[in-house]
């Protein structure tokens, strides 16, 4: 029995070690939940970290879950701010929306892929499963591995609407559930192609030019690169208190001026029509 007691005490000790520091955080005076799009989440995480480092006693709780889940969470009140990387549907229009940034949609391939530019209808045919070899695109004699997002994702929705139109994305395509995973898979497979948020493109993957136009801030602002979408913050009523402070912080010059470094377009840069 003594070994049993010892075990229990040890477990308790470990528990206390990790539990006590956590208790300290009870001194947090207010907390808000920000939930939704996994495309916006990585940025929101950074913003929240920065915001919290400036305002000691608050907690900004950033959740993924996806655009639809975020929209629902705001409607039901389980989140104070929703994040959506797709436009609201008819029955969701009662929410307040704030455009916090614009994002380009990049078509990415492996850096070793000799193909640098594609026409929009070529991209369409690739993702529809009609062009199946890079050879047909002046590339290597290899089969194309198409990587897409899952049904219901905001990024897939935007891609479907802006590139595919009425055509279906091929059933044979590999399906993954976040931008990061698509990027990771494309960075490892030399024959693959996928689409992700422009803000998340890094040097492990290569964004291709569409109809000869590279996805740069310049090209997106002037609408030469056509694939762009708004990043939205949503709230049930006019945002108040901490939620409002956080939204104002995100819209402040301090954050907005950093967006281009992170691959996003500041909200104020684009006026008029939000889409292409």
């Amino acid at each position: 029995m003594s070994s049993l007691n010892l075990t229990i005490w040890l477990l308790l000790l470990v528990f206390c070690f990790f539990a006590f520091p956590a208790c300290r955080s009870h001194s947090v005076s207010s907390e808000i939940v920000v939930a939704g799009s996994t495309s916006i989440q990585p940025f929101a995480d950074e913003w929240a970290e920065l915001f919290m480092s400036k305002n000691n006693k608050v907690n900004i709780n950033v959740q993924g879950g996806g655009s639809s889940a975020g929209i629902m969470a705001v409607k039901e009140g389980s989140a104070n701010i929703g994040m959506s990387s797709r436009e609201l549907k008819e029955d969701e229009r009662d929410l307040k929306e704030i455009i916090i940034a614009y994002d380009g949609l990049a078509i990415i391939v492996h850096p070793a892929n000799p193909v640098n530019s594609l026409a929009i209808d070529q991209v369409q045919s690739i993702f529809a499963g009609e062009i199946t070899s890079w050879k047909m695109l002046n590339g290597l004699d290899q089969n194309i591995t198409v990587v897409v997002r899952e049904e219901g994702s905001g990024t897939r929705g935007a891609f479907q609407e802006m590139v595919m139109g009425p055509r279906r994305i091929s059933k044979k395509a590999i399906v993954e559930d976040s931008n990061g995973v698509v990027r990771e898979i494309v960075s490892r497979d030399e024959n693959s192609i996928g689409f992700i948020s422009l803000g998340l493109v890094n040097d492990q993957v290569k964004p291709v030019a569409l109809d000869g136009v590279k996805p740069t801030e310049e090209a997106i602002v002037h609408n030469n690169y056509r694939l762009r979408r708004p990043f939205l913050f949503l709230s049930r009523q006019e945002p108040q208190g901490l939620a409002k402070e956080f939204i104002d912080f995100v819209l402040s010059a301090e954050i907005q001026s950093r967006l281009p470094q992170e691959g996003l377009i500041p909200a104020q840069k684009i006026t008029g029509d939000r889409r292409f």
């Binding site: 996994t38 993924g64 879950g65 996806g66 655009s67 639809s68 889940a69 929209i71 629902m72 899952e150 049904e151 219901g152 994702s153 905001g154 044979k172 590999i174 399906v175 993954e176 559930d177």
Partner: peptide
Amino acid sequence: LAPVRTLTSNIALEMAYASGEH
């Protein structure tokens, strides 16, 4: 050698974004 989706992964992949009938 072809990719495949199981019933379990169908749920886990799409649950986050799904709404309504989906």
